[in-house]
Design a protein around this nucleic acid. Structure first.
Length: 830
DNA sequence: CGGATCGAC
DNA sequence: CTATGTCGATCCG
């Protein structure tokens, strides 16, 4: 449809505008976006690859359509309810916000290409890429002006930029350089986490503390003006850095701030390797990563450790920039009108109904600017594999022998790490780019080439037979081994600890444990798998995941007018304080109708709340939510706990990278050179954010054959903070917008926010500061029994309709064991 | 557990 | 001619 297209284009432009990317710097050599797209299209159209891309695109579109149907069935009550639940969780997250760490993300600029240019002067001032005709790992900024990107096949890059020099990768060299860089990084955080050869996270919190007392000497570095830097002072061109560090003669003194420390790191890297790096400084890894992208190349950016700064940064941030949000997720969320983090936050209730628990939790973290503050050493390897692409192979005999070869290679790699596993998986990709995997698990571990091949061969044979009389026309084959046994001793220990922690988490569910809710910590259910069978586990997870936990939790300040909120909260707190055990008689005030419910059991109270919520006579004026994502209170600083892990670098990964052909797409590079004009060369930069954005091979239009979704959605993009959340079969009531200043009744300070949610959070925190700790201990002490609540729950409430299947909703791994009523209350009062 | 898919580098 | 390789995680059946 015509209008559809227009809308999309507008959205895109808008996005680009917000990202500050939509200017094509004219005058420089290079291509504009249209030309790039055209060339790529021509090179692509009609190829098998393209056909498969279209097919995949259709599947994604289908998923979106399903999602939209589900969305259409959601009632306003369900949504309201979800809102309460989600906001309760958001509140917990807010309280667990930890701003006390200084996390740095270091990212070498166009790493492989930069190394090649450094070591071969011929390549200076030329567009180059590292890789092969088949696939490029990275390109320099010059080449990027022509649309040449990482993850692009070389032959297409050549069409975009005929002068392009493609140099084959020298992984050994990159590794050596990487080691040099890591030596520097270790000075600032011995436990830093290397993500690849060119990227690492550091927690420099401790370093900064010590650094405060350092004499100038220890922060003083001499500028090397040796041969390698014949062009003069490497720092000279950088106006930004010129001010701060004191430059005296040939030395620079860096300050004691985080920003200065990171400048020092980058300075030392450049001095040592003649390569530049970019960096991001923030209170958590998620933000640091995004930051490092902001002033790339050769720049840095800091988000100051206060909530306001974080929220400000997050506000217009396109979700796609966040690690973990890929092409598909971006598209699905876009279908819901979500592009920025603010929009992601605004739709949180809906998302909780449409996505799995892990997914919407992740989304909520992102939209609140939360992330991991720990650099957890990554655990033991879970699988090892080999795969290879080749020109079409149709003879079964060749296929078997190739399979055998792969098994041998795999066995070799396995031997290096002394690994044995029980599951063998083969991967096949045919000439149409369709991928299949077939797995088989045996009862005892295998590791030799012969053992693995015996299993892989059977799997392969089955596939060949299945297609008989036709041969398999393959372009890729792979073999993987997984299901490694648990390392006995340690594993058992960990298993016990893990179990206890899981218990704690389920019980306390308060800030304490929640600080770990980042992606990294989310997972790790492995301990449980020993106790229960897989299916047992799944079953019990499902059982507890949803409905059960709902009732009393629905009580939430969010839904209340501020004054009422305070009253109710206070009252409930009093009740809690005085009543020893939950299920006895207590006095509750219904957050929906605001009537005291007298001395009733929790179940009864829950029933009442449900009735109130579900019933027709809902207090329609009730404030749902204001959307502002803006600043608010400075809150709840946690103690600075320093976790130290043993040094761990991802050597495995890198080693593998090394002796496999062209891999490791340098996806990290790219992007917006606009806001901050790059120093030397490299201007222009075509819009896309390459690291992501489907490695940009295809013009968006080419695959978007069915964009009509965009229009069929009733979702309304919010123009300002007060507008309704979204349209649904039963549209929402307009929200009440609080215009007057909000003054916290506890601390008496005016809160600079018009966002009720945030204000309520503040009040809650003020109110409960002291009490919470006690409640936590309390709840831990009183291990709740499972109580009658679940039956109670099943008795009424939703159940039907939309509860079908949303994209997954395990209460994955760890959490949410049965919540006792007592516990639920506990959660509520934080 | 098996298979497909996503995402990162 | 010519569109990677390796790993971890999630979700669904």
């Amino acid at each position: 449809m015509h209008s559809t297209k227009e809308k999309n284009d507008n959205n895109k432009d808008d996005l680009l505008l917000r990202m500050g990317l939509n200017d094509n710097k004219a005058g420089m050599e290079g291509l504009d976006k249209e030309k790039i797209n055209k060339i790529i299209m021509e090179a692509t159209r009609g190829s098998k690859f393209y056909g498969n891309e279209l097919k995949k695109e259709k599947q994604v579109n289908q998923r979106i359509e399903n999602m939209m149907q589900q969305k259409a069935q959601i009632t306003s009550q369900q949504l309201r309810k979800a809102q309460l639940q989600v906001d309760r969780f958001a509140m917990e997250l807010e309280q667990s916000r930890d701003l006390n760490n200084t996390i740095v993300h270091i990212d070498m600029d166009a790493f492989y290409a930069a190394v090649e240019m450094r070591d071969n002067p011929e390549l200076k001032d030329k567009p180059i890429a590292v890789g092969s005709m088949m696939m490029l790992s990275t390109s320099n900024y010059y080449a990027r002006r022509f649309g040449v990107r990482a993850a692009m096949p070389g032959f297409i890059a050549k069409r975009l930029c005929p002068q392009l020099t493609i140099v084959p990768p020298n992984f050994d060299k990159y590794q050596a350089v990487s080691r040099e860089v890591k030596e520097i990084l270790a000075d600032y955080d011995p436990n830093f986490m290397a993500m690849s050869l060119d990227e690492a996270y550091l927690n420099i919190t401790k370093h900064l503390q010590e650094r405060q007392n350092w004499p100038e000497d220890k922060r003083k570095y001499f500028i090397k003006t040796g041969n390698s830097l014949e062009n003069g002072n490497p720092f000279q061109a950088n106006s930004e850095e010129q001010n701060n560090p004191q430059i005296l003669q040939n030395a620079i003194v860096f300050g004691t701030s985080a920003e200065e420390a990171v400048k020092e790191i980058r300075f030392r890297i450049e001095q040592k390797t003649t390569l530049t790096a970019s960096a991001g400084i923030a209170p958590n890894t998620m933000l640091a990563k995004v930051c490092s992208d902001k002033n790339k190349p050769n720049g840095q950016y800091q988000i100051l450790p206060n909530r306001e700064a974080v929220m400000d940064f997050i506000k217009d941030l396109p979700i796609r920039k966040v690690s973990g949000i890929g092409k598909v997720t971006e598209k699905m969320l876009k279908a819901l009108g979500i592009i920025t983090c603010t929009e992601l936050y605004q739709q949180r209730a809906l998302l909780s109904l449409l996505f799995s628990e892990t997914s919407w939790h992740h989304f909520l973290h992102i939209s609140l600017g939360l992330g991991s503050t720990l650099l957890a050493r990554d655990g033991d390897r879970k699988s090892m594999s080999v795969e290879r692409t080749f020109s079409e192979m149709s003879k079964a005999e060749e296929q078997y022998s190739l399979c055998q070869e792969l098994c041998s290679e795999l066995a070799q790699d396995l031997q290096k790490e002394g690994l044995k596993g029980r599951t063998v998986t083969i991967k096949l990709k045919n000439v149409n780019f369709e991928v299949k995997t077939r797995a088989s698990t045996v009862s005892s571990v295998v590791s030799t080439a012969e053992e693995i091949f015996a299993i892989a061969k059977d799997l392969l044979r089955t596939e060949i037979d299945a297609d008989f009389p036709h041969p398999l026309r393959l372009r890729l084959m792979g073999v993987r081994l997984s299901s490694f046994p648990n390392e006995d001793k340690k594993q058992q220990q960990r298993s016990i600890i893990g179990f206890l922690q899981a218990g704690n988490q389920a019980l306390s569910a308060t800030g304490h444990m929640l600080e770990k809710t980042d992606k990294d910590q989310f997972l790790k259910p492995l301990e449980m798998s020993q106790k229960k069978s897989f299916f047992d586990k799944k079953r019990s997870e499902r059982k507890w995941s949803q409905q059960d936990t709902f009732k009393c939790e629905a009580v939430d300040t969010q839904s209340l007018q501020t004054s009422d909120s305070f009253q109710v909260l206070k009252k409930m707190n009093e009740n809690l304080e005085t009543s020893e055990n939950s299920n006895k008689s207590q006095i509750f005030t219904c957050p929906s109708c605001f009537r005291e419910q007298g001395s009733i059991s929790l179940e009864a109270f829950n029933k009442h709340v449900d009735a109130c919520l579900d019933g027709p006579s809902i207090n329609e004026d009730r404030k749902m939510f204001s959307c502002s994502h803006a600043s608010s209170t400075e809150v709840n600083r946690k103690e600075n706990v320093h976790h130290s892990f043993s040094l761990h670098e991802k050597q495995d990964y890198e080693t593998h990278q090394k002796h496999s052909g062209i891999n490791s797409v340098d996806c990290a590079e790219l992007v917006e050179t606009k806001g901050n004009p790059p120093k030397a060369e490299s201007v222009g930069a075509l819009s896309d954010k390459h690291s992501k954005e489907e490695c940009a091979v295809f013009p968006r239009e080419s695959f978007n054959t069915e964009q009509h979704y965009q229009n069929s959605f009733s979702t309304v993009l919010l123009e300002d903070m007060g507008s309704s959340q979204q349209e649904s079969p039963q549209p929402y009531l307009p929200e009440v917008i609080i215009t007057q200043a909000l003054v916290c009744p506890i601390c008496n300070l005016e809160q600079k926010t018009s966002d009720l949610t945030l204000f309520n959070m503040h009040v809650d925190i003020c109110l409960n500061k002291g009490i919470i700790q006690e409640l936590r201990k309390d709840s831990l002490a009183n291990q709740p029994t499972k109580s009658t609540k679940s039956t109670d729950t099943s008795g009424q409430v939703q159940k039907t309709a939309t509860k079908t299947k949303r994209p997954g909703m395990h209460s994955s791994s760890k959490k949410v064991k049965p919540n006792s009523p007592r516990h639920t209350l506990d959660i509520f009062f934080k």
